[in-house]
Simulated assay, not measured.
Amino acid sequence: MLDVLKPVTSLKLSTKPRGEGAVFKLHYRATFVFIMGCCILVTATQYIGDPIECLPDKDSIPQKVIDTYCYITSTYTLPKYYNMKVGVEVPHWGLGPEMAEDEKVYHNYYIWVPYMLFIQAISFYVPHWIWKAIQTDKVYTILMGLDNRSLDEAEKKDKENLLVKYLALHLHTHNVWAVKYIVCEILNFVNVLVQISITNAFLGGEFTNYGPKVASFLWQDPEDRTDPMYEVFPRVTKCKFWKYGPSGTVQKHDALCVLALNIINEKIYVILWFWLIILSVISALALLYRVLTMVSPSFRARILRQHGGTLRPSPLDPSARDAVDSLVHRCQYGDWYLLHSLGRSMNNLTFLDVLRALDRELNRSHSSDYDLNEKNLLKGKDVTSV
């Protein structure tokens, strides 16, 4: 089975720095790989068995014919037998003697599960693909290899100087770039909600409460409980097949069909329910965090100082804290997010050197501009006096 999943396990997703946060990566890495692996797993019939095997009431129908017919036309269960004891009142869950007026619940979505999973996996990768296409490798290009810990000291200093000059020269020009990333974050959150809604419609409205039902089922009395996974993914269903008899009359044939694939489908969608709910909550919190960073400069300064709890200047070295406070005061949101993205990819000490050097560079530029303005002002006064 590991050979079946080998295309997913060997999938090489780019680790190039692009300014993406951890929650963003959960969408296009963890979720994409998990759903794509499930898609491959449900098509591995050599390990699970045939998707459907039917037992007709007579031997006059070829096995392959009845199996194919019932698979493509969908099978059904009878709701009036859902709460009866299997092996005592009914032979299988939801199956029993049928009357013409009895309500039937048809189950044909198991045919489309692999396709549905494939489309969902692609949908979780799309926001990342959009971000990768529009961000022009800004973070990776600006880093110039400073995320490589094996650089010698001289080369590292040269790259740091180039980085500082770029940041100082292009100050206040990164807001559009940051807005693009925020839009992609919103797309991730919207996509999770859309996938929950689509999956619920795909499973006939059963997905919304699927996780809580399965969780409560585990705590019920084994003698009285009914597995909610049977309702969504029944393992034995019923099928009708009509054919002509020897005299030309239409004959009806009932068949019991075993859906071996549903034993995998039910587990996949239980895990998927919990994962999508957790991912939607985390994505919502990430958006709240983004709003907080946009409206609170002090929060941005705190994040930049601590940098995930690893960049904490000591009280004996207040220059780092002062440099960060000064930069946050001067930088717009796009500049701050670029610095934060660089800090996530660089060594903490290297990043701290860059912050100090950038603060000195901006101070020097500000001082030069001030002196130039003073000289122009004095020249203007001299001309006026003459």
Rank of each mutant, 00 (worst) to 15 (best):
A133T: 13
I271P: 00
E266L: 12
I111Y: 14
I48L: 09
N347S: 14
R344Q: 15
G309I: 03
I198T: 08
I134F: 09
D369R: 05
R312D: 00
V105P: 00
Y76P: 03
P97F: 02
D57Y: 01
V236T: 08
V328M: 05
T31E: 01
S365Y: 00
Q63R: 07
Q220P: 05
L162R: 09
P222A: 14
T199N: 05
W93H: 12
P246N: 01
K243W: 13
L151E: 10
N188I: 14
D322N: 10
G205M: 08
Q306T: 07
C39D: 04
E223T: 14
D221M: 09
L338E: 12
D371L: 14
L377D: 12
K267H: 11
L358M: 01
V250H: 05
K238S: 07
M116D: 07
I48S: 08
C38G: 10
K375N: 09
L261F: 09
E20T: 09
F274G: 11
F202A: 09
A323Q: 00
H172R: 04
M294A: 03
L167N: 03
V295L: 03
I35E: 02
K6N: 06
Y71A: 15
L362H: 02
N262V: 10
K165D: 15
I277W: 10
A100Y: 10
L55N: 09
S150N: 12
F217G: 11
V328Q: 02
K25W: 08
S216I: 06
V8S: 06
V192I: 13
K80A: 02
H174E: 06
K375L: 14
W131H: 12
V214D: 01
M99S: 12
V250E: 12
S326R: 06
D317S: 14
K16W: 06
L355Y: 04
L143T: 04
R344M: 10
K165E: 14
C39Q: 10
I72M: 04
P127A: 03
L316M: 07
T249R: 15
E206C: 03
R149T: 13
R321M: 11
P212G: 09
G380K: 04
S367M: 00
S341A: 15
H340C: 15
K58P: 04
W336T: 09
D224M: 11
Y69R: 03
I142G: 01
E231I: 07
A215V: 14
T226S: 09
Y82I: 01
R225Y: 14
W131M: 04
D335I: 13
